[in-house]
């Protein structure tokens, strides 16, 4: 699929589509339409998730899912307000996302609901609860 086909495929689930070039596009969706979009991607034959990025932008944490639609890169943004940092897991549809979701949970404190193995991935076991290193308000490791 090239960028046009991908944007055609996701247009009813996502808005704000920005086609960067023939093999890369950005789009924004929300939690309500997210699951339906995943299924649509899956039906269209997308199997590869490259990674998940989380960005703290003030009151909102943006979660970006990078899907590889052979060869187009679909970068799907889901903005999550900080008072409701929850997102359903995608591991049932894309099992390769297991580690990325654990990473997202411990680094930005996004609660991934229904994750099969929600342990820490990189942080040490004695890292305090509720301290997330990639948040804006983070000021150094706790003593």
């Amino acid at each position: 699929m090239d960028s046009k086909e991908v944007s055609e495929l996701i247009k009813e689930y996502a808005g704000d589509v920005r086609i960067v070039n023939n093999r890369c596009l950005f789009a924004t969706s929300d939690k309500q339409r997210f699951r339906a979009l995943l299924r649509a991607l899956r039906v269209a034959g997308v199997t590869h998730i490259s990674t998940i990025t989380g960005i703290d932008v003030g009151n909102v944490v943006e979660v970006i899912y990078h899907f590889d639609c052979w060869p187009t890169m679909l970068n799907l943004k889901i903005p999550l307000p900080k008072d409701d940092l929850k997102i359903p897991t995608i591991t049932d549809v894309f099992p390769g996302a297991v580690l990325y979701e654990r990473d997202l949970m411990e680094m930005l404190g996004v609660k991934v609901e229904g994750h099969p193995d929600p342990r820490r991935l990189f942080l040490p076991d004695d890292w305090p609860e509720g301290v997330y290193p990639l948040r804006k308000e983070f000021r150094g490791a706790p003593k």
Partner: peptide, 8 residues
């Protein structure tokens, strides 16, 4: 392992 802030 390049991600976190402090080394474990």
């Amino acid at each position: 392992d390049r991600i976190t802030l402090v080394d474990s």
